[in-house]
Design a protein around this nucleic acid. Structure first.
Length: 441
DNA sequence: TCTCTGCTCAC
DNA sequence: CAAGTGAGCAGAGAC
C-alpha cells in the first residue's frame, strides 16, 4: 500500500470497499501527529477519511430518466436552431458568442452601442440579451436555445459518462484544498452545481436515486446559514432577534428597511430585501444593487443606508473586518481559518474595493464551511456500523442514502448539524426524504 | 493537444 | 470600475 501514490489509492478506493477501510485506518493515527493549527488539526485532518468514504460510496444514478429528457431537448434545440437561422437570414454557429454577436449587432443592429468584452467581442450574455427581449423575437429563442444546450451538454449527456463500470454509481472527487475560503469543491463530475432553479433543469435531479430498494435519499439543508453567521459575528441585536423569533429573514429585513409591519411587506419589498441580504454577504455596492434590482442608483443607495441604520452592528462588523485586514493582512473564520488579503491598501480603488469584499465575504462563507465540515466529521462517526451512508456535500446541504430501518437517524443527523458550533442564533436544518434528489428537497 | 475566452450552472 | 466561492462546456486560435 505504501508503494502506490496516494492519489491513485484514492481512485482505486472508489471501486473497492476494503481498500477504503484500509485507507481510513492508515490515515487516522498519522493525522493525529500533525500539528499546525486548530482548523487543520480539528477539521481538515479528520475530514480526510470522511471525504474518502463519500467518494467511495458514490450515488446511484438512473440514466433511463435522462435519455427521455435528452431526446426532448434534442428536438427543442433543433426547432430553436431553425427558427434562429430563419430570423437571422442565414445559418451560423449559435454556440459561438463571437458569431452570435456579429449577427445581432453587425447585421441586425439590435443596439446602437453594444457592450463589448475585454477582447473586443460583443457581449451576448443573459443580462445583455434579457434587455433586448422585447425588441426582437429572435432574443427569447436564443435564450431558450442557450438554456436547452446548457442542460444537454453539461448535465444530461455528460453525467451518464461518469457512471463507474464497477459500482454503477457516480463517484465525484472532492477537493479539500482549492478554494480560498475553506469550502469544498467537486469535480468529475461536479455534483455541487446540478440544476434546481428551472422546471426543466430540476428534472435532472430525478436521476440521482437511492442505491437500492431498502434506501431512500435524505437531504438535510441548513436554512440561511450565512446570514445567521453574519448575525452571530456582528452581534447585531435586531438581526439576531429576527432569527431567535423564527422570522423569515428577508421579510423581517423588508419590514425594517421599508418601515412597514411584518404582515404588510409586499412581494417586491421582500425581493429587494433578499437581494440586499445577499449583497451584504458579498460586499455590496450601490451600483451593483441598482443593476441587480434594475432600479436607479439613488434608490439603491437609500435602501443600503436604511439597511445599515436598521442593522448598525452589521455596518460596524464590516468596517472592523476591513480595518483588521488592513492591519494584519488577514481575516479569520470562527474556527480560526485564515485568508490572506492582499491589495487591501492598494491605491487603486477598484483593486482595493475588491480586496475589501473578499475580506468581508471570507469569514462568512468560510465559517459556514467550518460548520458543515464539523457536522460531517461527527455524523460519519455516528454512522459507523450503520447502513445509512453520507454521499454528498453541497456547501449547506448533506445528502445520504438512508436505510428504511434507520429512520431515527434523521433526527440525529439534524441535531448534529444544528449543534455543530453553538452560535448566538439558532441554526435550523430542514430534512426531506424521497425516491430521488428532487423529491428529497 | 493545450490554453484562453465567454457563458452559465450551483451555493 | 461596479456582488462572494467554484466547475464544465463549446469555440477559437496557438503550437
Amino acid at each position: 500500500m505504501t508503494n502506490v501514490p496516494l492519489e491513485k489509492l484514492c481512485d482505486y478506493a472508489c471501486e473497492d470497499a476494503d481498500l477504503t477501510l484500509q485507507l481510513k485506518e492508515h490515515f487516522e493515527p498519522k493525522l493525529k501527529e500533525a500539528k499546525q493549527s486548530a482548523p487543520f488539526e480539528q477539521i481538515e485532518c479528520p475530514l480526510i477519511p470522511v471525504l474518502i468514504e463519500m467518494e467511495a460510496n458514490g450515488i446511484a444514478f438512473d440514466t433511463e430518466i435522462l435519455s427521455e429528457i435528452s431526446t426532448k431537448l434534442a428536438i427543442q434545440i433543433d426547432t430553436y436552431k431553425k427558427q434562429i437561422h430563419e430570423l437571422a437570414g442565414h445559418e451560423f454557429n449559435i454556440n459561438s458568442p463571437k458569431q452570435l454577436g456579429e449577427v445581432l449587432f453587425d447585421e441586425m443592429f439590435l443596439v446602437e452601442n453594444p457592450k463589448k468584452t475585454k477582447t473586443g467581442q460583443y457581449q451576448t450574455n443573459e443580462e445583455v440579451l434579457h434587455k433586448l427581449v422585447d425588441d426582437h423575437k429572435i432574443i427569447q429563442i436564443i435564450l431558450d436555445y442557450r438554456s436547452a444546450t446548457k442542460l444537454k451538454s453539461t448535465y444530461v449527456d455528460a453525467l451518464p459518462k461518469e457512471i463507474s463500470a464497477n459500482t454503477k454509481r457516480i463517484h465525484t472527487t472532492f477537493s479539500q484544498a482549492v478554494t480560498t475560503t475553506g469550502r469544498l469543491a467537486s469535480s468529475n463530475p461536479n455534483i455541487q452545481n446540478i440544476p434546481i432553479r428551472t422546471e426543466q433543469g430540476e428534472e435532472i435531479r430525478r436521476a440521482f436515486i437511492p442505491r437500492s430498494g431498502n434506501f431512500t435519499l435524505l437531504a438535510a439543508d441548513y436554512s440561511q446559514i450565512e446570514l445567521r453567521i453574519m448575525a452571530h459575528l456582528s452581534g447585531d441585536e435586531g438581526m439576531k432577534q429576527a432569527f431567535i423569533d423564527g422570522e423569515d429573514i428577508h421579510t423581517a429585513t423588508a419590514a425594517r428597511v421599508f418601515g412597514v409591519a411584518l404582515n404588510e411587506v409586499t412581494k417586491e419589498q421582500r425581493r429587494r430585501s433578499k437581494m440586499v441580504n445577499f449583497g451584504i454577504i458579498y460586499g455590496i455596492s450601490a451600483f451593483g444593487l441598482s443593476q441587480r434590482l434594475r432600479i436607479p442608483k439613488k434608490e439603491a443607495t437609500e435602501i443600503i443606508e436604511n439597511y445599515f441604520a436598521q442593522y448598525p452592528a452589521v455596518k460596524t462588523f464590516m468596517d472592523n473586518t476591513i480595518a483588521t485586514a488592513r492591519d494584519k493582512g488577514t481575516v479569520e473564520t470562527i474556527s480560526g481559518r485564515i485568508r490572506h488579503i492582499r491589495d487591501i491598501n492598494s491605491s487603486n480603488q477598484t483593486v482595493r474595493s475588491a480586496a475589501e469584499r473578499y475580506a468581508i465575504n471570507a469569514p462568512i462563507q468560510g465559517s459556514a464551511a467550518d460548520l458543515i465540515k464539523i457536522a460531517m466529521i461527527r455524523i460519519e462517526k455516528m454512522l459507523r456500523g450503520k447502513k445509512t451512508k453520507l454521499l454528498l456535500q453541497v456547501h449547506d446541504e448533506l445528502v445520504f442514502d438512508l436505510h428504511t430501518d434507520e429512520q431515527h437517524l434523521i433526527t440525529e443527523i439534524q441535531k448534529q448539524m444544528e449543534d455543530a458550533i453553538p452560535l448566538d442564533v439558532p441554526l435550523t436544518v430542514e430534512c426531506g426524504t424521497g425516491e430521488n434528489w428532487l423529491q428529497a428537497h
